[in-house]
Write a protein that binds this DNA or RNA. Structure first.
Length: 347
DNA sequence: CACACGTGGCG
DNA sequence: TCGCCAAGTGT
């Protein structure tokens, strides 16, 4: 038995009895779909009932004032959904004579209705062959077929949309769409799905390859972190001390000056910072601030300060990554770009 | 196109 | 506790 047919079989036996599954009325389905965007069924269900009681028809919805709509929406989150619904209800009254559209291409033009919702309403209410792609579909397809392309990357979205439409059971798009989403919500759950009782476990790539906990892959935002690098320029007999950066951090194998990294912005007046300098370079050291700059990388923002050191003690020779370099011959060294920028800037 | 938008539940 | 996730969309 094929993938979509297995899903539908599972669905017919295991589906929850939800109110919006008893109708093909596009208005009612629209109501449920908007409410369920990024929202769990348990959380959205009371709102669905509340909205249907207050606004049994699009007409009633359109004639309500926005304040009442938002009042009813209170506590659901993503309040633009409520405002967009109100606007859409009025467009349906004016442009569609109060008859809620059922075609994808019409639905997609309405406020608050994107690719997912247009596919959902059109397939559920008119049987149009449009595959829904939501968080559940990403997960089910990613695991079953072993797709590791990140679901939130442009390539990933394209790949999953294509695959979803290839898999679409065109004999019954409505049931298939509901089936794959319900399957993702109840069986192929994000965390600890019970693969032992899964009807698709024999053909599941993720289960076979022990990737259920890994797929789908979602790229993290990686918020930019701030780092404070304090560089020390040590000059002796017309030589300057540089250091090769080690593996496990930015600029691997590139050269820069010896430095102390701190968790905050620092100044020489800062006791802790001065203590660190002395413990590293010797108590008699005399540090002098030269200049600072910001260096913005993809995942981090570097705050860089330069200090010139005088009267330091030569306790660096033991460290392998440190090198004395002739100031005059700097440009002849195997030059890492980074040090070259810094050096050319200050010498 | 990366990001903001809300709230509640879960491990 | 806290990050992740939940039937996405608009900008």
């Amino acid at each position: 038995m094929t993938f979509p047919e297995e899903l539908i079989k599972w669905y017919l036996f295991n589906k929850r009895d939800l109110p919006w599954r008893h109708t093909k009325d596009p208005y009612v389905i629209w109501l449920s779909e908007i409410i369920l965007q990024q929202t769990r069924v348990e959380q959205g269900l009371p709102y669905f009932n509340k909205f249907l009681e207050n606004f049994p028809t699009v007409k009633a919805f359109a004639e309500a004032n926005e304040a009442k709509v938002l009042k009813l929406w209170q506590g659901l989150g993503y309040y633009s959904r409520g405002r967009n619904m109100h606007a859409t209800a009025q467009v349906v009254m004016e442009k569609y004579d109060g008859k809620f559209p059922v075609l994808h291409d019409e639905l997609i033009t309405l406020k608050g209705i994107g690719e997912y919702t247009a596919a959902a309403i059109s397939s559920f209410s008119s049987g149009e062959a449009r595959a829904v792609v939501d968080g559940n579909v990403f997960r089910v397809l990613s695991r079953f077929f072993g797709i590791s392309t990140p679901i939130n990357s442009p390539q990933g979205k394209k790949a999953f949309y294509n695959l979803a439409n290839e898999m679409l059971y065109t004999n019954d798009p409505s049931t298939y769409n509901q089936a794959i989403m319900e399957f993702g919500a109840l069986q192929c759950k994000p965390k600890s799905p019970n693969c032992g009782i899964c009807p698709l476990n024999l053909g599941c790539y993720a289960l076979k390859n022990n990737l259920v906990q890994v797929l789908p892959i979602k790229l993290k935002k990686a918020p930019q972190k701030h780092r404070f690098l304090n560089y020390f320029i040590l000059i002796h007999n017309n030589n300057v001390l540089i250091r090769e950066r080690q593996v496990g951090d930015i600029w691997q194998h590139l050269f820069d000056f010896p430095s102390i990294e701190t968790s905050d912005a620092t100044s020489l007046d800062d006791n802790d910072f001065m203590l660190q300098i002395k413990s590293t370079f010797g108590n008699d050291v005399d540090a002098q601030f030269i200049t600072h700059k910001r260096h913005v990388l993809t995942h981090q923002i570097l705050h860089i300060q330069f200090f010139e050191l005088k009267n330091y003690i030569f306790n660096f020779s033991k460290q392998k990554e440190l090198y004395w370099v002739s100031l005059a011959g700097l440009n002849e060294r195997p030059q890492p770009k980074v040090i070259h920028d810094f050096v050319s800037e200050y010498f």
